[in-house]
Write a protein that binds this DNA or RNA. Structure first.
Lengths: 137, 137
DNA sequence: CCGGATCCTCTAAGATACTG
DNA sequence: CAGTATCTTAGAGGATCCGG
């Protein structure tokens, strides 16, 4: 299957559906962190990611929970406690994410070099051609 | 040691850099299609993707070219002809993308089911969400 | 401590029209 | 045919207040 499959159009919807979640920067981080840490509370996640707003973290977790990738456990204690963890499905997602992560680590330098190369070749493009990552901090 | 392992944090920048490209739905499609077709002209790509605006396709291709993932060959003929293809780097990217694609194909049904399940448990998800939500346990 | 609701900003995608 | 330029709009994302 994958890209050489002639019935690619059937996978296309699924892929673009999944990409909408994967493409979300926070979702990938959350899955990665939960995969390593096992179980974390809301503020532990928030502190770990360090840069995510509480709103985005909430939304991200809701989406992941809705997709069956993350579990949400509420402990009705006096100081409210909510713990998040990966479902089995979420754990399987780690595999392709890891693949992507490895590829990034391996080829990132090449990409940076290619960009520098490209920018050097462009004579009249004084302004930044591509979008930049969200300015954090 | 905090959960953000230093060995991973070095990859984090690379990952988020790459994710900004992968997360782009059009980029993934272009890489996938070029991987299967080998070489395509601008309008062939546009017709194949069928839904992308010419502006987005141009931007996508520029970014991919800038990152060294796609080659752009101009034939100075009377009717202008420009052909796009994958670079070697672009071809290696197909591997992790395929992994993701396969995962999507395999688990998309589960996700859809999980969503339906989740939505069924939620009181009013349409447009009136003003409800006390945490009734799960 | 968790997170819903609200307000506001700023980017990026889409449509359209024009050039080489 | 391939690509650029311009305008408009939707919504992603941050900050903040408040309530369970």
């Amino acid at each position: 299957m994958s890209l050489t499959d002639t019935s690619q159009s059937s996978n296309c919807a699924a892929m673009s559906d999944v990409l909408n979640r994967i493409g979300d920067k926070w979702s990938v981080l959350v899955v990665g962190i939960l995969g390593r840490s096992g179980t974390l509370r809301f503020n532990e996640l928030k502190r770990t990611i360090n840069g995510v707003s509480q709103r985005m973290l909430t939304l991200t977790l809701r989406n992941l929970e809705r997709d069956g990738l993350v579990t949400r456990t509420i402990y009705p204690e006096v100081p409210p406690r909510v713990e998040y963890g990966l479902t089995e499905l979420g754990k399987t997602l780690q595999v392709p994410i890891s693949g992507l992560w490895d590829w990034s680590a391996e080829h990132h330098a090449t990409i940076v070099e290619a960009r520098a190369n490209y920018d050097a070749r462009q004579p009249g493009t004084d302004n930044a051609p591509a979008k930049i990552a969200y300015a954090r901090g």
